[in-house]
């Protein structure tokens, strides 16, 4: 039925270009996204950090992976928000009444999410460097770190797509992100899990954030990465597949 697939990539690049313009014309979103994680980074490093025993010399080195995940958590709230606005303003309807491949509309937002979160992560790393973060990781390790973060972003972005398409209000579109932003607290992102009560510890050790944080932490400190990296990726891929299926189902009904 769709005779439009030969233009899939062309259409997608138009959609992508459009939402990238949104990002660059509202750089404040990048700042808003980075501000909370930076505040937490300052708080934890300069206030609590001295009292936290992590077994690493430099607390910020321990902390940074969790902060990165928090950044992505707050970044994807904007994906939901932008998609919701498209739906509400009728732009989605305009696109859908045109002879284009329908799913490119979503893919444009998803790609933009990857790029804008990438920019936020770079901002966070620069601030961390100013605060004394040092890494012995080489190029390959850094690529692996960005790879993991990319897959993590993709997973959360598809969750955000569901939120944006299903939301009834702009606030509702972004609200789903709060639990995700705070998920790192109940993990090994800020403190080792050993001192947590056993029920909390079981949750903290089993939830997806912990293996992701630990894999990134080991990569950045040039330590061998164990099986946790595969656990981390498996979590992300399961989330991607499930969220993608749900998102597409909601999208088709629009």
């Amino acid at each position: 039925m769709e005779s439009t697939n030969k233009y899939f990539f062309k259409d997608m690049s138009v959609m992508f270009g459009r939402s990238m313009r949104h990002i660059f014309r509202s750089m404040d979103t990048i700042i808003t996204v980075s501000i909370t994680p930076i505040a937490f980074m300052l708080l934890f490093v300069y206030v609590f950090g001295g009292a936290i025993e992590t077994g690493t010399e430099n607390y910020i080195d321990y902390l940074l992976p969790g902060i990165m995940l928090m950044t992505i958590g707050s970044g994807i709230a904007y994906v939901a928000y932008r998609l919701f606005m498209d739906k509400q303003r009728g732009i989605l309807e305009r696109f859908h009444s045109m002879p284009i491949a329908r799913s490119t509309v979503l893919w444009g937002h998803v790609l933009t999410s990857l790029i804008s979160n990438g920019i936020s992560i770079v901002v966070i790393i620069l601030v961390a460097l100013l605060m004394g973060f040092r890494s012995s990781a080489g190029i390959l390790e850094w690529l692996a770190v960005f790879g993991i973060l990319g897959v993590f972003t993709l997973a959360l972005t598809w969750v955000a797509v569901i939120a944006g398409l299903a939301a009834k209000t702009p606030d509702g579109a972004g609200a789903f992100a709060y639990p995700i932003i705070f998920l790192p607290f109940v993990s090994s992102a800020f403190v080792p899990t050993d001192t947590m009560p056993s029920a909390v510890r079981v949750f903290a050790e089993k939830q997806p954030v912990t293996p992701i944080v630990e894999a990134i932490r080991n990569l950045l400190s040039n330590q061998p990465v164990g099986s946790e990296i595969w656990t981390a990726l498996a979590w992300c891929i399961v989330i991607i597949v499930v969220a993608y299926i749900f998102a597409m189902r909601i999208y088709k009904k629009l």
Partner: peptide
């Protein structure tokens, strides 16, 4: 065809 919906469906940031 081309559709102009009830509310101006324009990208306000562009």
């Amino acid at each position: 065809i081309s559709l102009t919906g009830q509310f101006a469906a324009i990208d306000e940031i562009l």
